[in-house]
Structure formats: structure tokens, C-alpha cells
Amino acid sequence: MDIELGYRPCVGVVLANREGKVFVGKRLDHPETTDGQIYWQMPQGGVDPGEDLETAMWRELHEETGVTQDNSTLIARAGESLRYDLPDELIGKLWGGKYRGQEQVWYLLRFTGDDSEVDLETHQPAEFAEWKWLDPEQLPEVIVPFKRVLYRAILEEFRNLI
């Protein structure tokens, strides 16, 4: 019996600094691929049952980066949610095998703090091994290939506000 897999509810954050660079982290669980490629991503994560999207966004941002409402400002929310599908080889292996991909609502925030306030170990287990600020135009090139279309759409949505 084939079961139609849905999309995991998720939020994502474009965290931009005062210079217009965006936060990316290198995941601890996938530091590099078999071809030696290292991929980076912006903060993102699942929405808990009964949790509103903005609350989930602030929770995920804090868990993954240590950044809070004390050192960042909400600038915008994307007009539409965006979906991506996992590659066939990952379907059934992530998120308890319940989802074929994620449906994400993205937010743009301005980081107003000091880089020393970023703390990747705020939550255990940590999500990222390291982080850096990156030119937004480089985003699609540093993400895993199956998320590139999504990252281009996010960049287009927020380009003039970053």
C-alpha cells in the first residue's frame, strides 16, 4: 500500500547583518559529502504541534545560533510558503519517514548584536559545526543541490530588504 507522504511544516531564517551579509552554518551531521563538497545552510527547523510560525522561528533561531529578539529585529515574512522535495535516496530516512520534503515559511531578520553573541552550542545537540557571514548572491552555490531552487526563491523574495 502506497501512502502519500506530505510535507513537514518548517520555518527558515535569513539572518542578515548590518553589512548585508547573511548567516550560514555548516551542519554537524553532514560536514562534507563523498565528493568532498561542504554545504552550508541558513537556520531552519520544524514547527512543533500547536506552535505558531513566528514562535517556531524565534525558537529555531535561538536553538541553532543563540540569537534572540534582544540582538535581532524582524524585517519581513515571505509572502508564500515554499516547498522542496528530498532526493529519492533520502525519502523515508529523515523525520521518521513521514515526509517527502518540507514546506517552509521564511523570515528575514536583521542581526543587531555583536558576532560574539552567536553561540552554536546554545542547544544540545548543536546543529552547526561553524558559521560565517556570506554574500547573499552566493547562497544558492553553498546549499545542497536539492535546495538550490528554494534558496534562489528566498533570495529573490528578500533581495531588496537584505
Results as ranks from 00 to 15, higher is better:
residue 92 G to I: 06
residue 68 T to Q: 00
residue 16 A to W: 03
residue 82 L to S: 06
residue 22 V to H: 10
residue 72 S to T: 09
residue 47 V to G: 15
residue 13 V to T: 10
residue 77 R to K: 14
residue 46 G to D: 15
residue 75 I to C: 02
residue 47 V to R: 15
residue 39 Y to F: 15
residue 20 G to N: 07
residue 35 D to S: 08
residue 97 G to F: 02
residue 58 W to I: 00
residue 35 D to K: 08
residue 56 A to P: 00
residue 40 W to G: 02
residue 41 Q to Y: 14
residue 11 V to I: 12
residue 32 E to D: 07
residue 35 D to G: 06
residue 56 A to G: 00
residue 90 L to I: 09
residue 80 E to N: 02
residue 38 I to V: 15
residue 19 E to V: 07
residue 33 T to E: 12
residue 40 W to I: 05
residue 90 L to D: 14
residue 26 K to L: 04
residue 16 A to D: 01
residue 71 N to H: 04
residue 34 T to C: 07
residue 41 Q to E: 14
residue 75 I to Q: 00
residue 52 D to P: 02
residue 94 L to S: 04
residue 63 E to L: 13
residue 93 K to Q: 14
residue 32 E to G: 01
residue 102 Q to L: 12
residue 61 L to E: 03
residue 96 G to M: 00
residue 55 T to H: 12
residue 22 V to P: 08
residue 77 R to C: 09
residue 11 V to L: 11
residue 28 L to F: 09
residue 48 D to L: 15
residue 36 G to P: 01
residue 18 R to I: 07
residue 86 L to R: 09
residue 78 A to H: 12
residue 36 G to W: 04
residue 39 Y to Q: 12
residue 56 A to C: 01
residue 67 V to G: 04
residue 55 T to S: 15
residue 75 I to S: 01
residue 79 G to L: 05
residue 83 R to H: 09
